[in-house]
Amino acid sequence: MPDRRTALTPDALLMMDAIARTGSFAAAARELGKVPSALTYSVRQLEDALDVLLFDRRSRQAKPTAAGEELLAEGRRLLAEMDAVANRVRRVATGWETQLTVAADGVLSRLTLLELCEAFYALRPDEAEQGPGTRLRLRTEVLAGTWEALVSGQADLALGVPLESAAPGIEIAPLGDLPFVFAVAPHHPLAALPEPLPDDAILRHRAVAVADSAQRLSPITVNLLPGQDVLTVSSMQAKIEAQLRCLGCGFVPEPLVRDHLRGGRLVAKTVQRQRRQVRLGYAWRAGAVGSRRQAPQGLALQWWLQQLESPATRRALLERHCGLPSDVD
Rank of each mutant, 00 (worst) to 15 (best):
D11M: 05
D11I: 06
M15V: 07
A18D: 07
A20M: 08
F25L: 15
F25G: 00
A26V: 13
P36S: 10
S42Y: 07
L46I: 07
F55T: 06
R57Q: 14
A62V: 09
K63S: 08
E69H: 10
A73Q: 13
A73V: 13
E74K: 11
G75A: 09
L79K: 02
V85N: 04
R88A: 14
R91F: 01
A93D: 14
A93H: 12
T94H: 12
G95N: 06
W96T: 03
A103W: 02
S109P: 03
S109G: 07
L111D: 15
L111I: 10
L113E: 03
E115A: 12
A119I: 02
F120Y: 13
Y121T: 11
L123N: 07
P125A: 05
E127H: 10
E129Q: 10
G131M: 00
G133R: 09
L136M: 12
R137Q: 14
E141M: 13
A144V: 04
T146Y: 05
E148C: 08
Q154T: 08
A158T: 05
V161S: 05
V161K: 01
L163N: 05
S165A: 15
A167H: 13
P168Q: 10
E171T: 15
A173T: 02
L175H: 06
D177K: 13
V184Q: 00
A185F: 04
P186Q: 04
P189R: 13
L190Q: 04
A191C: 03
E195Y: 04
E195R: 12
D200W: 12
I202R: 15
R204S: 13
H205A: 02
H205P: 08
R206L: 03
V208R: 00
V208P: 05
R216D: 11
L217S: 08
S218D: 13
S218R: 14
P219S: 10
N223Y: 11
L224N: 06
L225Q: 06
P226Q: 10
V230F: 06
L231N: 01
V233M: 01
A238P: 00
I240A: 09
A242V: 05
L247G: 09
G248S: 09
C249T: 14
E254A: 14
P255H: 05
V257G: 02
D259Y: 02
H260V: 04
L261A: 02
G264S: 09
R265C: 04
V267P: 03
V267T: 14
A268T: 05
K269N: 01
Q272I: 15
R273K: 14
R279F: 08
Y282W: 10
A286H: 09
R293P: 01
Q297N: 00
G298Q: 02
G298N: 07
A300C: 11
A300V: 02
W304G: 01
L308N: 03
E309F: 02
E309I: 01
P311Q: 08
A312G: 01
T313G: 03
T313F: 01
R314Y: 03
R315D: 11
H321E: 02
D327S: 12
V328N: 05
D329Y: 03
D329T: 10
